[in-house]
């Protein structure tokens, strides 16, 4: 025991712990600032990202191969199902094209240049996931050079998955919507029911046991049913309007019985992500 806790060693241990704690406190405190991370850290992350690309490539390749095999096994059923959808899709596509063209024209006439729905999509590969049980973070392969900024929303092919929390030059970190950290700022979303009326709210949490997104403190009397579509509302400015979030799973009273809580089935699968899209405004 003498060897472990001699005076000098004890002092060194305490100093190291204090330095470690100080570094952590500072980085937690500055995490949400616009200027974070500092240039040196960005450079370090860019180098790490470049090396990681080399290692992530074969691993992701293997994942792609195994996904292809399982896709192949389901091909027949999927083909049957898709055939039915294709006919309806052509109709919907033409409709959407006409509406978009008309929308553009009308907007020009109103001199309305920046609408809430306009954004460009930047596609990025997922390099890695933080190996920690306390953070649901991904590192993606595009950064500031591709126009990505902090707090931009990130989607998979099927729907919203999270937001950008740290931007380096050539890669950036994404915090998933399933993250329960208290500092995670939440998305403004809206539910549209069959009659066309909307209910606004924000994502207040994520229920890990059922994999549902929660939208709490809803006091509106508008009737919401299971299966109604949920999209981002564009309020607050950072997130464009109309990104698909999911469908309503159920509506229940909250714990105090004053407001209701809407539970939403996310459209995206948060555990199988290889390619994501960042909505750049």
């Amino acid at each position: 025991m003498q060897k472990f806790f001699s005076n000098r060693k004890l002092v060194i241990v305490i100093i190291v712990l204090i330095i470690s704690f100080g570094l952590m406190s500072v980085s937690v405190a500055v995490r949400n600032k616009k200027s974070t991370p500092p240039l040196l850290q960005q450079f370090g992350n860019d180098v790490a990202g470049a090396v990681d690309r080399v290692i992530a490539w074969p691993v992701n390749g293997l994942q792609g191969a195994s996904n292809s095999v399982s896709d192949l096994l389901n091909t027949y059923q999927e083909n049957q199902k898709l055939k039915k959808q294709v006919d309806q899709l052509a109709q919907a596509k033409v409709n959407a094209q006409t509406a978009t063209a008309e929308n553009k024209q009308l907007r020009k006439e109103l001199k309305l240049n920046n609408s809430l729905t306009a954004y460009t999509a930047v596609t990025a590969n997922v390099l890695t996931r933080t190996p920690s049980s306390w953070m649901n973070q991904l590192v993606i392969s595009k950064g500031a050079t591709a126009g990505i900024k902090k707090n931009m929303p990130v989607m998979s092919q099927s729907g919203l998955i999270g937001r950008v929390v740290e931007v380096n030059q050539t890669n950036s970190k994404v915090e998933l919507i399933s993250s329960t950290s208290s500092s995670a700022d939440k998305f403004a979303i809206q539910v549209t029911n069959k009659a066309g009326s909307t209910v606004n709210g924000i994502v207040t949490g994520y229920d890990k046991s059922t994999n549902l997104i929660e939208m709490g403190s809803v006091t509106s009397k508008t009737k919401i049913k299971k299966g109604d579509k949920v999209v981002t509302s564009g309020l607050g400015g950072v997130t464009p309007k109309g990104l698909y979030v999911g469908t309503v799973a159920k509506v229940k009273q909250d714990d105090y019985g004053l407001a209701s809580e809407v539970e939403i089935t996310p459209a995206a699968n948060l555990t199988d992500l290889t390619v994501v899209t960042v909505a750049v405004q």
Binding site: F21, G22, M24, V28, R31, N45, D52, T128, Q137, E166
Partner: peptide
């Protein structure tokens, strides 16, 4: 730096 963004842990 690369995974968590929280230094010193």
């Amino acid at each position: 730096w690369y995974y968590t963004g929280i230094l010193g842990v």
